[in-house]
Write a protein that binds this DNA or RNA. Structure first.
Length: 470
RNA sequence: GGCGCUAUCGUCUAGUGGCCUAGGACACAGCCCUCUCAAGGCUGGUACACGGGUUCGAAUCCCGUUAGCGCUACCA
């Protein structure tokens, strides 16, 4: 059996949305799993809405996600000669016909149908011009569109995710395949390209199922075997409606900005509409590829749950070594306006366990290297108030005890017993000593264990913050 | 309206006729651990849309109902 050839074919009329990203991912998983080829094709035939900037954003989004293409990117607009040749071949074959009706004339019919409440249907019998009129327009060299003559037969296919889906030709209109300006309409262009690119598996969104019978009819008329179709479900917003701008973040770039790791995004998207058939949730790339199959793709749409994405991102943050987080953290730090020559790895190491996004992680790092970012929050202030004069006196005690520690002994393992001893000497609970220090160093009542915090902030800086707070 | 698709916890899902008084994860609540917060461990509540069949047996198969979604362009 020859290896499969799949394609991802976005139109550059907007950003790369999570739905499209997931479709790309499923194609990519399938290609990698089967040793097939992933073709990237930009469907830019809508001249009005397509832009190079959008194309670039899509390419960047795919790259960020780790989706690589083996061929392309090809631009559909460049293939119009082929599309047109195929459409004209259909004409010669008698499977399509010239339609001299102008768009304006058609609109009259459509408006009439609407006014009378009758659903509009294009029918060869009633819409066609009289033979005389056709001859007259033809002689005058009037422009014409080419319509495909849909056969009155069953068009069914065995969808790789839905199973058998069946349509009747009589329920479909004779759709236009070539505009009067000589450019191809979507369904014609897709079929023409997919044939030319020898695509074997069309994995795309559910919103295309109604295009599929039209495309199959085209394959048959052109004398080509149709590919295998797999229609993957849509992604919905929290309200169960199709994901759109008003749901907030919908583009993959938004999640990148939010501090989501590509690996986490890939894992999360994979599990949205597909499952490995077991209880496993955290699946590294290699595992995803090895286990991916169309048979376990869900038939129903899935709601995009940002909370679970962030949980998963937190899992990735915890298990990734600090070294791999260095670059993304530095980028976020730059956005925060923080520059430092310090080795950030030890800080990232302790802070990543409590972070769900790179953004939050970077803020925590910034707080530890930049004293000016220490601002006492509500709980920190409440603690200081609750302890009253003890707050300052505990800090002074801590300061003097910690001052005795030499720079070489300044590490979490050595600091911990010292602080415990201090609490014991004072007859205070450990928390009574630790919390004021935490507030002095971070402004908040939440952080990594205090000895680690002190170690990470450093001796001189820690002492300075202690002194400033007491 | 027509055609098509879909229907398991709030959400993502396991389930492909008996292993299901329905399993896991996120979220939520409680407890443990503990200097705080996470993480981790334990516990808890919450689901097979409804109605008919088929079968010894149905979340799983069939039919109908209901609901949701998609398409119904010289857009993609």
């Amino acid at each position: 059996m020859t290896p499969p050839r799949v394609r991802f074919a976005p139109s550059p009329t907007g950003y790369l949305h999570v739905g499209g990203a997931r479709t790309a991912l499923f194609n990519w998983f399938y290609a990698k799993h089967t040793g097939g080829t992933f073709v990237l094709r930009i469907e830019d035939t809508d001249q009005q809405r397509s832009t190079d900037a959008h194309t670039q954003v899509i390419l960047d989004g795919l790259t960020w996600l780790g989706v690589t293409w083996d061929e392309g990117p090809f631009f559909q607009g460049a293939n119009n000669a082929q599309h047109r040749a195929d459409a004209e071949r259909l004409l010669t074959l008698g499977r399509a016909y010239k339609d001299y009706l102008t768009a304006a004339e058609l609109e009259v019919h459509r408006a009439h149908a609407k006014a009378t409440g009758v659903p509009f249907r294009f029918t060869r019998a009633t819409m066609n011009l009289s033979a005389d009129e056709v001859a007259r327009r033809e002689a005058a060299g009037a422009p014409y569109a080419i319509r495909f003559a849909i056969p009155d037969e069953e068009i069914a296919w065995d969808d790789a995710v839905h199973g058998r889906i069946s349509w009747q030709g009589r329920d479909m209109d004779d759709f236009i395949i070539l505009r009067s300006d000589g450019t191809a309409i979507y369904n014609m262009a897709v079929v023409s390209d997919d044939i030319a690119m020898r695509i074997t598996h069309v994995i795309r969104g559910d919103d295309h199922v109604s295009n599929t019978p039209k495309q199959i009819a085209l394959y048959r008329a052109l004398g080509h075997a149709e590919p295998i179709f797999a229609h993957v479900p849509m992604i919905l917003g929290a309200d169960g409606k199709k994901l759109s701008k008003r749901h907030g973040a919908t583009a993959v770039g938004d999640y990148q900005d939010m501090g989501i790791l590509p690996g986490a995004m890939r894992n999360f998207l994979a599990l949205l509409g597909w499952s490995p058939g077991s209880n496993d949730e955290i699946l590294p790339e290699a595992e995803l590829i090895a286990r991916f199959d169309l048979g376990h793709v869900q038939k129903k749409p899935a709601v995009f749950d940002t909370t679970k994405l962030e949980w998963m991102n937190g899992q990735y943050l915890s298990m990734l070594p600090a070294a791999e987080l260095l670059d993304p953290v530095r980028r976020q730090l730059a956005l925060l306006g923080v520059t430092t020559t310090r080795d950030l790895s030890p800080i990232i190491e302790v802070v990543k366990l409590r972070s769900r996004t790179i953004t939050h992680l970077a803020e925590q790092v910034a707080l530890r290297v930049d004293a000016s970012r220490v601002v006492r929050d509500a709980k920190g202030a409440a603690l200081a108030e609750k302890l009253g004069p003890k707050f300052a006196s505990y800090l002074e005690l801590a300061h003097s005890a910690l001052s005795a520690v030499t720079p070489t002994e300044w590490n979490a393992a050595a600091l911990e017993p010292l602080l415990k001893q201090l609490a014991e000497n004072e007859g205070a609970k450990l928390g009574d000593i630790m919390q004021p220090i935490r507030v002095a160093l971070t402004g908040s009542t939440v952080s990594e264990p205090v000895p680690e915090l002190l170690a990470v902030v450093g001796r001189d800086e820690s002492l300075a913050r202690l002194a400033a707070a007491s």
